[in-house]
Design a protein around this nucleic acid. Structure first.
Lengths: 217, 217
DNA sequence: CGCTCATTTGAATCTAATCAACTCCTGTGG
DNA sequence: CCACAGGAGTTGATTAGATTCAAATGAGCG
């Protein structure tokens, strides 16, 4: 299995809730790298909140289950990105490794945002949440999927218009407020429109990034 | 960690993006009250960000327009609630008074969150954004409208199960990712279900708050 | 190679959007 | 006081888009 291990992902945060940083570690007491097997739970709903995580390699999915049992995937996080912000003392979300992944964490004491680095991370997270909200509030299926793919590709940095999708169609669907079948059909339509090419089910090549952005922005 | 520093004036923040506070003014250099006529613009898309507003009386609507010209109403803010957080240096959203309203503001210097009161406001705002996201990501029309009405009624505090809606059906629709006709029909269905009563078009009485929460939570 | 699970594809159904007409409310002016 | 105008809201008919249910295909893994 090919494991992507990018040095860093920069770029503005995207719809999947990323906050990319270089040099984020300065001034933060980071834990040693914890390694997680595929599907391993990193934290659970109900856990005590307060730890913030940084992805070293791999990909993490953060989700939340509603009272009716429906799932919202709040974000996917790649190398260099930060996840784990919560507003209460108990976690409402849970996080899992989508593939073999490494994370480091630091403790956020009592909502202490005096460290401007942490404040920036929180603002970036807020921005990605706004972007996600805009997509769920205003876009249709094909627009959502287009925006999602552009967001993923942008964050994977230097490797051009190609991106691997470590998440399933069902994960994408629950992130975009759609069903997995609708996601599959939207991807198919994007191929017919010659805006993307699929290589297998989990690799996409963006053929016309501008058109995708026009659709999804 | 993440403990509340201070009792809130109202329940947990709701889907409309409210952060209600008593005594919020302590330690903040608030401006004098600015008064706004109905429909008056409080700030515009493109304005310099950095000021945070507190509603003294009335109601404020915050919205954002997408490139395609679609509108997302990110929140409605009532007396005691805080709005105006943005992630960049330029505002992406614009704010308008829905009725004769008063606001006071303070300046947030360069994302400075060292004041724990401001950090709390930001966390509350993040929580309301999460709630909004959950609704747009997982709920259908009648559930969205039920959740919206409960949220409004909860925030209007002491005046029992009755709430005035200073916003139009179209505003509600753009907040919930629906059309105004769908909102109107959902309200009608909630009446038929005997969960609410309408008094005119802009006043609702919640008859069965539990059932509404079951629908919308 | 064969199993399992993810994905795709198809058909039917259903929800919400769209387009259109009509009602209601409110404010204005004769 | 009543008539009228204009905007907001409701209601109806139709359409479009996404969901649901079901089956077939494909990919990865032992």
């Amino acid at each position: 299995m090919f494991m992507q291990r990018e040095p860093r992902s920069m770029g503005p945060s995207s719809i999947t809730g990323a906050a990319g940083y270089t040099g984020f570690a300065e001034g933060l007491k980071l834990s040693a790298t914890a390694r997680h097997r595929e599907k391993e739970l990193i934290y659970a709903q109900g856990d005590e909140a307060g730890d913030i995580f940084i992805v070293e390699f791999g990909c993490v999915r953060v989700s939340r289950i509603t009272l009716e049992g429906r799932r919202l995937v709040t974000g996917f996080y790649f190398a260099g990105e930060v996840f784990g912000f919560e507003t209460g003392s108990e976690r409402q979300c849970y996080a899992e490794a989508l593939e073999y992944s490494g994370t480091r964490k630091f403790h956020l004491e009592d909502r202490d945002l005096t460290n401007p680095r942490i404040a920036d991370m929180l603002f970036d997270y807020l921005e990605s949440t706004h972007q996600h909200l805009l997509i769920l509030g205003t876009q249709n299926a094909i627009e959502r999927v287009a925006a999602f793919l552009v967001g993923i590709a942008d964050r994977r940095g230097g490797d051009g218009p190609r991106a691997r999708l470590p998440m399933s169609r069902s994960d994408i669907a629950d992130h975009l407020g759609l069903t997995l079948e609708t996601v599959s059909r939207a991807i198919h339509r994007l191929q017919v429109l010659k805006l993307i090419t699929l290589v297998g089910a989990r690799d996409v090549i963006l053929l016309d990034r501008e058109a995708l952005i026009d659709l999804g922005a």
